[in-house]
């Protein structure tokens, strides 16, 4: 069943169905990027509104989740950029963001990914929060599925090494 095609034909219930099915994944991604529950909620709402407005741009070649995540990610990055322009000390913000990773349930996840590069973090977010596969992540990040798989394995190895070095069992470190 393709909700977005139905949305393009003006079916509002399909928009609600799409929202119900995917909004949690979109929200979690927005939360990880924006590190602000309020902004993440707004970004999630706006993502679905944009899907509604641009449903005719959708091609069934893409999965619905790829289309949604592509829009959500772009929107979140735009919000971050705008915030950086408003606050010249954007780097300070980033540092604050990093510092804030010790609190809040959403930050457990990001905190755990802290040893990784931005790209590796993003791949793990898309894999575990949005439940995308290598092919879909590759389309969003303009990388080949093989490259995504390689970076994913590399990220897992890094995490493995990091948390084993700090005391063996990662559960005891993070939880």
């Amino acid at each position: 069943m393709n909700h977005i095609k139905d949305i393009a034909s003006g079916d509002f219930f399909s928009l609600k169905a799409l929202y119900k099915e995917h909004h949690i994944k979109v929200y979690r991604l927005a939360l990880c990027i924006l590190d602000d529950p309020f902004l993440a909620r707004e970004a999630t709402q706006e993502t679905f509104l944009r899907v509604q407005r641009n449903a005719d741009c959708y091609s069934p070649v893409l999965s619905e989740m790829t289309f949604l995540v592509g829009i959500a990610r772009s929107l979140c990055l735009d919000i971050l950029k705008k915030r950086a322009l408003q606050i010249p000390e954007y780097e300070q913000t980033k540092k604050l963001r990093t510092a804030s990773m010790t609190t809040g349930s959403h930050n457990d996840f990001m905190n755990f990914l802290a040893p990784l590069s931005d790209l590796e973090q993003e791949i793990l977010c898309l894999r575990f929060l949005c439940e995308l596969n290598d092919k879909e992540i590759g389309i969003i990040l303009s990388k080949t599925p093989r490259m995504i798989k390689r970076l994913y394995n590399q990220a897992l190895r890094k995490l493995n090494l990091t948390y084993r070095g700090e005391g063996g069992d990662s559960d005891s470190v993070v939880e």
Partner: peptide, 23 residues
């Protein structure tokens, strides 16, 4: 572990409002 952490993340339970303030 990553999956558990992702599952434990807070969820956004708000239903679709059809509006946002960041347009």
């Amino acid at each position: 572990i990553l999956k558990e952490k992702a599952d434990h993340m807070e969820v956004h339970s708000e239903s679709f409002l059809g509006m946002s303030r960041i347009h």
